[in-house]
Amino acid sequence: MSETAIGEQAAMLAKQNSFLRQHGTKLLALLFWGILVGGYYLYANANELTLLDSLHLVVNFLTASLLGPLFYIVIYALRPLLFFPATILTLLGGFLFGPIGILWTIIGSNASALIAYTVGRYFGQGILDSEEETNLIQKYTQRMRQNSFETVLIMRLLFLPYDLVNYAAGFLKIRWQPFILATVIGSIPGTVSVVLFASSFGTLDELMSGDFQISPLTLIVSIGLILVSIGLSRLIKRREASEN
């Protein structure tokens, strides 16, 4: 084989590897959703299930089975690869499990943060190519390298896009120990408030049947935590502005 042919083959392989690095997670997510939708369609047709029947089956599995919380945690952990919104899963944690959903959601969300961090670290090419995302994150990148824990903690308290922070931390190859510790601490106020807010309206089964009662105390606590989180984020923003 000539040197020209070898060079062309190497260039083709490099191009294929680059494509997989940039779009591998998207292809994986597309494959997952294709299997999920196709599997549901076949199962529902074979058992003559309506959409509401299917929802009841899923809710019963998640809430009445010992494997339910584990399944929820696994789905939450894989969420960055499936492009599923974190807020929806966090709300579901409250609707499905009540206040104990705080624990399952914290475990799942931090596992998902570590997975997204790993994706950013090893497959980070192109993650920060978007001008909008870069402008949002660029003023923190140098600080993230120099003081990882404090910077990630501030970004969590400021409610910057959850996955973008995860990917950026991995892309910048900061140490995972301060990253995950800051994520655990910084995400607690938002997670607790959202899960409590959802659980204050009752279970998902009750909501679907229209038979639910609002828990005033849980709702007040959740709103209070949300207000505290917003106030803390504004305080940090003012401090950031005064330092610049």
Rank of each mutant, 00 (worst) to 15 (best):
Q16S: 08
R238Q: 12
L128G: 02
V184R: 04
T218N: 12
R21V: 11
H56W: 02
F159R: 15
D163Q: 14
L136G: 11
V228A: 10
A182T: 06
G34L: 14
L128M: 11
S18D: 13
Y76R: 11
A64K: 12
P178M: 05
L227P: 09
T63F: 01
E243P: 09
L204R: 00
L52A: 08
V58W: 05
L51P: 00
T25W: 01
R156S: 12
F149N: 07
E3S: 13
Y41P: 02
G7K: 14
T134D: 14
V195T: 03
G124V: 03
G170R: 02
L67R: 05
G202E: 03
T87W: 04
A64D: 04
A86W: 07
V58C: 06
I107G: 05
G124K: 00
A241T: 07
G93A: 09
I180M: 13
L157N: 06
T203M: 12
I220Y: 03
Y43N: 13
A241I: 07
S222E: 03
G24T: 02
A86C: 10
I230N: 00
V165D: 09
A44W: 02
S148G: 13
I188H: 00
I236T: 04
K26W: 15
I35M: 06
E243N: 14
G38S: 05
F123G: 11
L157Q: 05
F171M: 13
I107A: 09
F171P: 08
P189F: 08
Y76H: 15
F201D: 02
I100C: 05
L70H: 02
A44N: 03
N147S: 14
L30D: 00
Q22N: 14
R238C: 01
S65H: 01
L225K: 05
G98K: 01
L164A: 08
I106P: 08
T191C: 11
L164C: 10
S109N: 07
R234F: 12
G124P: 01
E48L: 09
S112L: 05
A64Y: 01
H23C: 04
L227I: 13
A46G: 02
P99N: 10
I220N: 02
V192L: 09
F179A: 11
D205A: 05
L181P: 12
A64P: 00
P189D: 04
L89H: 06
P99F: 03
D163E: 15
F171Q: 11
T218M: 15
L164F: 09
I75P: 10
L55T: 00
F201G: 06
L158Y: 09
V74I: 15
L136F: 12
G190T: 10
H23Y: 14
L232S: 09
T141K: 15
I236E: 03
Y117P: 04
S233L: 06
L136R: 13
I180S: 12
F61Y: 07
Q125L: 11
I115K: 00
P178A: 09
L20Q: 07
I188N: 00
S233Y: 10
G190K: 09
P216G: 02
A168G: 13
L42I: 09
G39C: 12
L227N: 08
R145C: 11
I214Q: 05
V184E: 01
S233P: 07
F179G: 12
G186Q: 01
I230K: 00
L153N: 08
M144N: 07
I226F: 15
L136T: 05
L89M: 14
N135A: 13
Y140F: 14
